[in-house]
Design a protein around this nucleic acid. Structure first.
Lengths: 348, 348
DNA sequence: CTGAAAGCGCTTACAG
DNA sequence: CTGAAAGCGCTTACAG
């Protein structure tokens, strides 16, 4: 049924070996035979079988991309860039979605490896994972995207998350906010962990106290964050601002505020983290910390490809850290004086 | 280096064939030898090579998913569902992003097939494409997701797009709008083509005239739609409402309106199409037509799997059509009387 | 410049 | 219940 190099060889009256040589554009094939073979390929509409080729070359030209949640636009947008760049280099990408579950992650790695992908980009991995070290030590190409692990041996590209959080908090404080709730997300990730540290430090540095009841450190779950925010916003003594560790979570906060009919930014300021495309939409206009995802995604892919083709056997800096940037839009402003006074504050 | 069935066979003192049998859980293996083999597998931490297995079984357990733009949340959310359901059934999925370009699409199909994926779901394909018919006739499992092709032979699951558009227009008309701009998108897709037809018919049916200058039928490009809307909104005689053929495009319209400081819905009504997750966010509250993506995605995957395992050799209905549903939220309202009067309308 | 042969790591009849 | 052998469709030394 399927047509193979053998068929081409027969039709072109050459050996399989020569067919293979023209298929791979090797030099050292007489022009006339190359032509014969090409014509046979054309005639039989032959396309070589990648699986068979992978079997012998030990390359599949496919990459794995493991994300916590592909429906989070930050990941979808990152994926788009990674897929695009990968395609340019001749790689396809298998996407695994873990729903932020460690067991799913482990399974994903397992099957990707058994499918012999040439390398993996992982974007949501617990900071205590030792899996990465094993892969790294085994020489398997892995790079962490917007993730890092505490055991040192790994290649990663991340933002300076600590600094990013400080930027966000400072912005709010400078606007006059003294009560800043925090959607921290799960601290099992080093990124969120460091943002939490940044939040804590910035508060302390500004002489503000951290109110644990104003911090959500549960899982990444839209509904749960919505509920947390919704409840917190019923408090007469509610925070005047929220800092969320992702734009997606910031949107959940805004969703909750809207359903309580609380106006943003007049009655509540919100800052996110990621700068996903939609945040720039002027109808939404979310103030946020840019993750530089174009850069980050491109660097991660480049790093991975280098690892694969071994151009970069001893990468100078295994860990790349990008600079965060505060992008002020329209979800933040000075806290509403009237509300504050009603609550007994006396301005600043 | 790599450890193989051969190694296991040696350690367990059996043949490769029996190793294979326990690997595949075949019956007819003595319990004691099964145990010996299992222990050897355990001991050497062996995981079978999927590539080699695919070579002989003619199955890769991987699917292809081709989308026009994975960064459009509608596609990302659909992908999440498809990937999740696929994983449940033991399939991984390679995602190809075409940027709505026909040549990219063709290349994607090509490489997916040479990688021997077991089946493909295509979500953005030109209605005049003859590629699908060829694949279909060759017996290759393909299902179209939210897409259909004019040549009949294909498996697809789509919404009744014509009716969806009628629903959207009727809603606006019933609210009192007489001037409804339309972001149609490229009419090369049957979905958008049919929505255009629905828009046209509904207008006619309501005795309204279609103003070609109020219709955007260019490519899916956020910037271009933004510009189109921005320009149209400068017109003193501008439309009082927009119907967009996707939520993503509706967002672009809202973006443009916001930058012109035009209030939604007071001064402009907007209805989208898709009902992506974020549209339900109450801060955004986009009125839209639901595509039932959960249903659609699940059905598409099920259809594909059936095609693959041939449980469904003669699918009763090759084309599945779902019912659209209007979801009214807060981006639509009656047209602002003051504005209308200022423009010389005299109410209704 | 060309081809015969071996091999990648599995599974599948088939014989015993 | 078990194993020897062939084969999936390529590529890669190697010999000529």
């Amino acid at each position: 049924m399927r047509i193979t190099v053998h068929d081409i060889a027969r039709v072109a009256n050459v050996s399989q070996a020569t067919v293979s040589k023209v298929l791979n554009n090797y030099s050292g094939v007489k022009e006339s035979t190359r032509k014969k073979v090409s014509e046979a390929i054309e005639e039989l509409k032959f396309t070589p079988d990648s699986v068979a080729r992978s079997m012998v070359t030990n390359k599949t030209n496919t990459l794995g991309l493991i994300v916590g949640d592909i429906s989070n636009p930050f990941f979808a947008e990152s994926a788009k860039i990674i897929i695009g760049k990968a395609q340019e280099q001749g790689y396809d990408v298998i996407i695994s979605n873990t729903d932020h579950d460690d067991e799913n992650l482990e399974n994903a790695i397992q099957t990707l490896i058994s499918k012999r992908v040439d390398g993996i980009i992982i974007s949501s991995i617990s900071r205590t994972s030792i899996r990465i070290k094993k892969l790294h030590d085994a020489g398997f190409p892995v790079v962490l995207y917007n993730s890092r692990v505490e055991s040192d041996s790994s290649n990663s590209v991340v933002l300076d998350n600590y600094k990013g959080a400080v930027l966000a908090v400072d912005h709010l404080v400078e606007l006059g906010h003294e009560s800043i709730a925090f959607i921290a997300g799960p601290t099992k990730y080093l990124t969120t962990y460091e943002r939490y540290a940044g939040y804590e430090a910035a508060l302390k540095n500004r002489g503000l106290v951290l109110n644990k009841e104003h911090v959500y450190d549960g899982e990444y779950d839209y509904e749960k964050v919505y509920d947390f925010s919704y409840n917190l916003l019923s408090d007469p003594d509610r925070p005047t601002s929220f800092f969320a560790t992702s734009d997606q979570m910031a949107l959940a906060v805004m969703d909750a505020a809207a359903s309580r009919n609380i106006k943003i930014p007049d009655e509540l300021s919100v800052v996110g983290f990621d700068n996903m495309n939609i945040s720039a939409n002027q109808y939404i206009g979310l103030t946020t910390i840019s993750q530089q995802k174009e850069n980050m995604a491109e660097l991660a892919l480049k790093k991975l490809i280098n690892l694969i083709v071994k151009k970069d056997p001893h990468p100078v800096s295994a860990e790349l850290t990008l600079e965060p940037e505060l992008i002020v839009r329209k979800t933040t402003s000075t806290p509403n004086k009237i509300i504050l006074e009603r609550r007994g504050y006396n301005g600043t």
